[in-house]
Nucleic acid binder design. Structure first.
Lengths: 310, 310
DNA sequence: ATTTAGCCATCCAAAATACGTATCGGTCCA
DNA sequence: TGGACCGATACGTATTTTGGATGGCTAAAT
């Protein structure tokens, strides 16, 4: 006993036969439409009726009519068949990368300027690719990339893992954030030396290691020694302290979009001129089909970043 | 070559196999759940993937994982399978008569009292049977019953067709509709003789033959001869003329629910006391499965009608 | 490093299913 | 009453599906 003596489930082939017969109201023509002969079509419909336990078509040798139950089932069958087609279509689109979802990790700083620009590009160039956003610091992003919680990360170097591919997507200038009344606001442009032995709000070496190390290296190279008043890891918190007049801060130019009252920005000459770098990273073996289309967007930004750094 | 070398359509069996495999993430267990062995299940999934042109499951010898496209298709497949089950269920319910639609023809007069009562009964006793209403005169109902445009008609006798089954569902009294100020309003109850040589608004012999013939017979039997002022076929039009003071009218008591200002009703003694009969009729060979349930409602009214005529 | 166990894919013969041809039985029309 | 039409049935054939055996591969155990 293989348990197959009575099927409690019908097959799509039977639905297609039934729909054809119900629409033609003629088994011969319906069979022709199904590219088969009339007897097997009859059998398929008999099978369907047997499975349902319901007579769907009233057939005399002269005319074929839908029963009331058949009328209802015809609507259902059409809906099912339509759904199968759209399901296949949607799945093929996902697989081809035309549509899909990319889960994107980003740092708070990259959310100020780069991310909005990226999402605008996506809206016009790849409208069927959804982007799910997750804010996290760079180290969390590395972890999430490994576990697959995000497909792509927008993060700060260094990224050393061999299983990642990375591209530089933005290089930003540093700007000085100064409180209202600071004397240095009189200059249109500043140098790092202007911060020597001056109070500075610094990045925390643990929570914002990239910025901390980068600034430390810049100051070291110029022989400048600012007075670290406070160490923070969130840029908006630093600007709040600047506003309170506690000291100056050096932030990526994207932070200028934060618009704190009584906090003013001035350009700084640094070497290199655009020391704040943002990278995109993803697992080289990521199989998300939408990734290719999304990376095209990022590569466009890579071009811009390279062009801007010339 | 039978033209079956490449199918562009999948089958439900393949969906069921895929859903099982996607849920178990283990071909062996999935096969057990499908009551088969692992090789055919593998093949079904390969077939499905080939038809879609999309890889749905990433399978190494150590682990089975859904691809992004597979995740999407899993949702679609579940939806399709759910729909097939509900379609079968709904169709079986229709066929068993638990649910369905009855198209009901009714005369304007029956709509005043009997029909609302019937629909209330339906709401409580057969809530899954929908009733589609079509107002038409008795002769139109006979025609519509023959062509199948309505399942059941609520109409006036005589109904002579052999292919119909009929039951009497209501017997009503006649009442007199009198304009404000009519002397006969002084009596609580009238006799037909009160209308001898008095102006009367009569039924048209073509548009309302049943009422016309019935009244003519009643008057004839009593030797009464009213003066026919006007002949109409719609009861509400007759009451409008009564209100205008043109004359009296004899209407079924159900028409009392029309509530015309300055139109008052008085009982009339007739023989038989309830001469206005309403029948339900349907084709004996009607195959609408919901008919049986609907007829149960009507038969309840039949009981009432018989009881009332005692 | 080697063995072992687990898992999916492939191969192949057997079983199940679907198909097509021929034919039957019934209805409608001439 | 005979012919045309139509769906159901019978039956031999072709296709598909199935299950057991087997192979290849990987991760874990020894």
């Amino acid at each position: 006993m293989t348990g197959a003596s009575f099927w409690s489930q019908f097959e799509l082939r039977q639905l297609r036969c039934f729909v054809a017969a119900a629409e033609e109201l003629h088994f011969g023509r319906a069979a022709a439409r199904m590219n088969m002969t009339q007897p097997p079509l009859s059998r398929q419909i008999q099978l369907l009726e047997h499975v349902l336990g319901v007579k769907l078509l009233d057939r005399t040798s002269r005319a074929v009519k839908l029963t009331p139950a058949g009328r209802v089932f015809l609507l259902e069958a059409r809906r099912i068949l339509r759904l199968t087609e759209s399901a296949a279509l949607a799945t093929r689109r996902i697989a081809s990368g035309e549509a899909g979802t990319i889960t994107l990790g980003f740092t708070a700083a990259s959310g100020y300027s780069f991310l909005p620009r990226l999402l605008l590009q996506r809206a016009s160039h790849a409208p069927n690719i959804d982007v799910a956003l997750k804010e996290m610091v760079s180290s969390e992003q590395v972890e999430s990339l490994l576990t697959g919680r995000i497909d792509v990360g927008l993060l700060r170097p260094p990224i050393t893992r061999g299983e990642f591919t990375t591209i530089k997507v933005a290089s930003e200038r540093l700007v000085a954030a100064l409180p209202f009344g600071d004397r240095r606001l009189g200059n249109a442009s500043l140098r790092l030396a202007d911060f020597d032995r001056q109070p500075l709000i610094m990045y925390a070496p643990d929570g914002a290691r990239y910025f901390h190390d980068m600034l430390a290296a810049l100051f070291e190279a110029e022989g400048v020694t600012p007075i670290t008043i406070q160490s923070l890891s969130q840029i908006h918190s630093m600007l709040a302290l600047v506003r309170a007049g506690i000291g100056a801060a050096l932030v990526p130019e994207a932070a200028m979009s934060l618009h704190f009252d009584d906090v003013h920005f001035r350009a700084i000459e640094t070497n290199p001129p655009r020391p704040v770098e943002l990278f995109a990273a993803w697992r080289t073996d990521n199989d998300n089909p939408a990734l290719a289309g999304f990376l095209d967007l990022l590569r466009q930004d890579e071009q811009d970043a390279v062009a801007a750094s010339d």
